[in-house]
């Protein structure tokens, strides 16, 4: 229930109505949304039990390594209800054709694959917020100084997931494990997203806010 309360309000992409609906507008909208989402993710992380007990340097290392996993997990969860469409925001849904035009085919295929995995598991909101918090603490950053403290947080959240599933689905002892086994695909998907954003940045021409650039470069 703590994680449900910590869940941020939804963001809107608000594509610029004065710009023609082109690949350029799609990419600009996407990068602007990602930047605002980052601010929200950083604020959200502070509400995850124990996160603020990490040193400031370790909070930074953790977020720098997992922010895109947290972001992608949110997008995949929002896309559960739509096959072959990726719901970056309620007012910013990209189908296969729009993705192709914007050069986002690979990213959208990857997020759709993750969403299919969650759909097959019928992941609900409680499980989504648990997984997102676990993904935060599942960092493998080599820059973390006190890994034991991060491991403790991870264990705490893992235990909470086990208890949740034990209460709600005592007939399905594999449920928690099945959810955790989606984390490798989440990491792979975030890797695809990083490649996509990095090549948008390298090609240039799409405005990117400072925080977004800072995190991409980290």
């Amino acid at each position: 229930s703590h994680l449900l309360v910590a869940e941020p309000e939804k963001l809107f992409a608000m594509p610029d109505p004065l710009q023609p609906d082109t690949a350029q507008r799609t990419l600009t909208t996407l990068c602007d949304l990602a930047d605002r989402e980052l601010v929200v993710i950083i604020g959200w992380a502070k509400h995850i039990p124990g996160f603020l007990s990490l040193s400031l340097a370790d909070q930074m290392s953790v977020l720098q390594s997992v922010w895109l996993e947290v972001l992608v997990l949110g997008v995949a969860y929002r896309s559960l209800g739509c096959e072959d469409e990726v719901v970056f925001a309620e007012d910013f849904v990209l189908d296969e054709e729009m993705s192709r035009v914007a050069g986002l085919t690979e990213l959208n295929a990857a997020i759709s694959q993750l969403a299919r995995r969650f759909r097959a598991l019928n992941v609900d909101r409680e499980e989504f917020v648990m997984l997102k918090a676990i993904a935060l603490t599942n960092s493998d950053s080599v820059y973390i100084e006190d890994m034991e403290a991060v491991q403790k947080l991870r264990d705490l959240l893992h235990q909470a997931l086990l208890e949740l599933e034990c209460q709600r689905r005592p007939d399905d002892p594999q449920r928690a494990g099945r959810l955790l086994l989606t984390l490798p695909l989440l990491r792979q998907t975030a890797g695809r997203a990083l490649n996509t954003f990095y090549s948008i940045k390298t090609r240039g021409g799409v405005p990117m806010h400072k925080l977004f650039l800072e995190m991409l470069e980290a």
Partner: peptide, 15 residues
């Protein structure tokens, strides 16, 4: 940390 100024600031500040 100098390179990651905004993240540093957002984590240090209140919500």
């Amino acid at each position: 940390q100098e390179k990651h100024k905004i993240l540093h600031k957002l984590l240090q500040n209140g919500n």
